[in-house]
Write a protein that binds this DNA or RNA. Structure first.
Lengths: 349, 349
DNA sequence: ATGAAAGCGCTAACAG
DNA sequence: CTGTTAGCGCTTTCAT
């Protein structure tokens, strides 16, 4: 880190003025003689001066850095969220300190502690579990740490939060399956750890509500119980295959995300069922790939990049406005992208 | 940032000792009376003391933070690299300051400047362009900034670098196509900006070499020239469709990555060509999805997470060992994953 | 075994 | 218009 070329003091000495004057010249603040300013600026660039932001941070008690903790990065979802956060952070001259919890609540705590020790100005986090770290978040709240949750929240805690309206998404997906005449619709989720996340729970609730509206009270869930194996496609493939091999029936699949849908479709096919003729399937996320597989996947699109942007914007607002302002819950609307995996529209793409 | 509860001075006063003693107790350094130590530790946790890492950084001239700049995060590739970096960073108590260049060389410079101002201890970067920022990197080199490049390098500059052996990957892919009897093999790349990257150039070179070995000197490249439109699937779809619509022929496709392969396959199908019966295609990256689409995609797998890990490890080594040690170029071996899109093995997965 | 004091590089209040 | 001084919270040298 010792590579910086010169500090303000060096410049001051070189020009023959005081450090304060250099400061004024560099920040164009307060009265300063244009000539002096020029000389200073010239020498500064001559010496390749660059401000030491850690010194500044220490002095002004603010780092212009936000901490971002997510479950993992390999999925379509968080990648996009991250870009959204990055965009607004860059636009506001903020840095982003990133770390993954990989789904472990205790790691999440460690990471956050570390970020706090590094004195980030605020935090954006996708909590690994809705319950495990409840007390921890209560403490953060008490400490007035600016924080906004994304994708998942901690029920009952007044923390700002931005996500897709997952319940609505699940409802829309299921309604669509119902509309194309399906009645034996199963919900395929992913690993059991993920299953507890409020986002997944929301999708399931939407699914349940839609079924209930049609007087179907039995919900069938595939996934939990199986060993947690990534990749998601494989997990789903196993879940659906297992269900089918027991002689159980289904004519519709609501997959918790597109990757899961791919795995489900493959399992159906391998079992001799045609999609969409025999079974309709709808996914969640609208990955780019979903428009190009066969059959093109009907899926619930959520505005991921916007979640990231909105979360960052909200956090910056919190950081600047401070403790005031009540909790904000931003729920972004999902929308259904109809393709061919449900048979609703066998042409088009 | 003012939310910290107590500093060393507060503790010192509370216990009735000096700041230095508190320091010794907290770090368990030097001689200190066990009793005093206990008392200090107790009061510290009582007060919820947390070290101020920015103060420490200023003092010791080291931030325990690395800067990471990538092109974008929405692809399979960088997501995985990032997790690799994150893993070893966490294991070594380092933080990761992340930012995306989105492919713009000037943004890349700005970002790096900002990271340097924040005094990161080192940088990991996937340079947007092999030429545009050449001088800039020469300066960084002169300034002795610890830096390792990933995925793409700047030809001629002695900067540490870790990536897949892309030339070999391209060669393996093309050899395979040749082996299954294909002779009219086209290379489908993506946007023209990306096309300049050394990783893509490498794949192309491997493709060319394999063809040359079979006395095929004509290479055909699809992609460059078309408007740069994301998503990649769509770009590839257009490129292949356009080629086909001109009445030109092909019996093999080497796609620069799996997403491009999906788009290509779809274009072939829509044109009435069967994969793998009429045309063989091989991709690059081995995304999880590739094993589940139809036909399962034959593709060149690269060890992405390892690239991230290795890059981080190499950087930390540089940071600690300093200027010594010659440039290191780490090329990780790719391997071919044979599925069914080439027809070499119509069973299995 | 403990303490005093200096200083990392910057900002900001106060004086002139 | 410019300079002096103090201090952010920590580490480290030198005394005691």
């Amino acid at each position: 880190m010792n590579r910086s070329r010169a500090d303000m003091d060096t410049i001051a000495r070189a020009v023959g003025v005081s450090k304060t004057t250099v400061y004024r010249a560099l920040h164009n603040k307060g009265r300063i003689h244009p000539q002096t300013r020029e000389r200073i600026l010239h020498v500064a660039s001559e010496l390749g001066y660059r401000p030491n932001l850690v010194a500044r941070s220490l002095r002004i008690q603010k780092t212009s850095t936000v901490g971002l903790v997510v479950i993992g990065l390999t999925g379509w979802f968080y990648s996009h969220i991250l870009e959204g956060v990055d965009e607004v952070a860059q636009a506001n001259q903020y840095g982003v300190l990133l770390a993954c919890s990989y789904g472990y609540p205790e790691k999440e705590r460690e990471i956050i502690q570390m970020l706090l020790d590094k004195r980030v100005d605020g935090l954006i986090v996708a909590p690994a579990d809705p319950e495990e770290n409840r007390e921890f978040y209560e403490e953060l709240l008490a400490l007035q740490v600016p924080i906004v949750l994304i994708d998942r929240y901690i029920p009952g805690l007044p923390i700002d939060f931005v996500a897709t309206n997952n319940e609505l998404g699940g409802y829309m997906a299921t309604r669509h399956l119902l509309k194309v005449g399906r009645r034996q619709i199963v919900f395929v989720s992913n690993g059991s750890r993920e299953r507890r996340a409020t986002s997944v729970v929301g999708r399931f609730e939407g699914y349940r509500r839609a079924l209930a509206e049609c007087d179907i009270c039995q919900t069938v869930e595939l996934g939990p119980g199986l060993p947690d194996i990534l990749p998601e496609e494989e997990y789903a493939y196993n879940a659906v295959s297992h269900y089918l091999s027991q002689g159980k029936e289904l004519d519709g699949v609501f997959a918790v995300n597109d990757d899961v849908a791919y795995g489900a479709i493959r399992a159906l096919r391998d079992y001799g069922l045609r999609v969409p003729e025999d079974v309709s399937v709808v996914g969640f996320d609208n990955q780019d790939t979903s428009a190009f597989i066969l059959p093109p996947l009907t899926t619930v699109a959520q505005p991921m990049r916007e979640i990231g942007q909105k979360a960052a914007a909200l956090l910056l607002e919190r950081i600047h406005k401070g403790r005031s302002a009540p909790q904000q819950q931003v729920l972004l609307a999902p929308h259904l992208v109809i393709r061919q995996s449900c048979g609703a529209r066998l042409n088009g793409s």
